[in-house]
Design a protein around this nucleic acid. Structure first.
Lengths: 212, 212
DNA sequence: CCAGAATCTTGACATTTGTCAAGAACGAAT
DNA sequence: ATTCGTTCTTGACAAATGTCAAGATTCTGG
């Protein structure tokens, strides 16, 4: 009986700990989300913990309470960002009923992303570059990259299916191609080049049938 | 006669000024070159003027004498870096006598670059990302990007010529593809992935005949 | 309701950083 | 050789930054 009580107590204690952990983690994500605002605005190099705190509803001490240091915070931001990104086109893939629908849906999302989420995406490119210097970022960045590659691959295979074909290149090459085009278009867009978005769309529209 | 003397004096003065300017500029490049060492090691975010000075034969005051501020220095570094980069493959293009020679020469240079100049290239990707935040970088970065695109295009057209064909995609798409592949391989290489280089070579070898 | 744990605030500290100015060292023209 | 302009060194300063600790506040189990 004593053992049963102990067992029950243990279970209760465990449940409590899990709950606390979840709450802790939820808070971390709240903070990460707030940090992403400033990071997207200023980039990694120019962003300090205090700047992040000032642009948020939190004080700078809280960040130190929830994160062991700056890298820990940024890593959490990157991980959180991943979840938002990698499913962006999945709805299009799921609902499109033809090559044309898939193409137009993809292009529309692409344009919207470039216009509305430019800040988040330049942060992603910034952090990916940081990963080349800072080993602590590499694991997360490589993982996100792989997820994005898979995302592109889902689009490509679906597109090919509609034509009864298979994609003409490897997942790596396809991702490199689209990511490279997007990155270049993003830079031009941020530089105020109004033609960046339509030119990207033209290019992708022309490319899709040739690679899938 | 007075006018002739004045004219001669003016010419001498002008020549002296040009000389001084050249000397000034040569020194700037020396300093930029020294700065690139530290920048390639630490990246833009973690590099300070003092750190640059300490890792070089110069004192931190000199940098302030030759550059109006930190951005000015970095911009000079970027511009200087460009000249080194954009002609890397030109010798291969000029000397190759067949598709095979061109392919092998290109691949060899690609592998060597990835192995020996990883630090300079991660800096390039870092600065390109910074350009998305810092308007002062954009002009130079966009220009370098265009030069690199042209460089890839020279290889592609030469490759196509050997087959009596024309490249199958636009310069922008081709550059996006190769740049994306290189960037991804660089990250993996820096992360200690021994397969990064051979996999890049395989991919490029497979890709070249399909796009040109 | 209360004690103890958790969450959070505030302020402080040492360090780093960009910037600058005063003057030393150097070179070239007279 | 002297003088003047260029080049460089050194030291200083204010602002910013990561880190931390002491205490306030809030939450929670009993």
């Amino acid at each position: 009986m004593a053992r049963q009580v102990t067992g029950a107590a243990r279970r209760v204690a465990d449940a409590a700990e899990v709950l606390r952990d979840e709450k802790f983690n939820a808070r971390r994500i709240e903070l990460a989300e707030a940090a992403l605002e400033t990071l997207g605005e200023l980039g990694f190099a120019r962003t300090s913990l205090r700047e992040i705190a000032q642009n948020s509803a939190f004080t700078h001490g809280v960040f130190h309470y929830y994160f062991s240091d700056k890298l820990d915070l940024i890593c959490c931001c990157v991980r959180h960002y991943k979840a938002k990104c990698v499913t962006r086109y999945d709805e299009v893939v799921a609902t499109a009923k033809s090559r044309e629908e898939l193409t137009e849906g993809f292009l529309a999302k692409l344009a919207a992303t470039l216009q509305d989420e430019a800040r988040m995406h330049r942060l992603w490119y910034d952090l990916r570059a940081q990963a080349m210097f800072e080993a602590a970022f590499r694991k997360d960045v490589l993982e996100i990259d792989k997820s994005l590659e898979a995302m592109i691959w889902r689009i490509a295979t679906r597109f090919a299916e509609f034509g009864g074909k298979r994609p003409a290149s490897s997942p790596a090459a396809l991702y490199a191609l689209f990511d490279g085009l997007f990155q270049s278009a993003l830079l031009k867009h941020l530089a105020g080049d109004k033609t960046a978005v339509p030119e990207l769309l033209d290019e992708v529209r022309r490319l899709l049938p040739t690679v899938c």
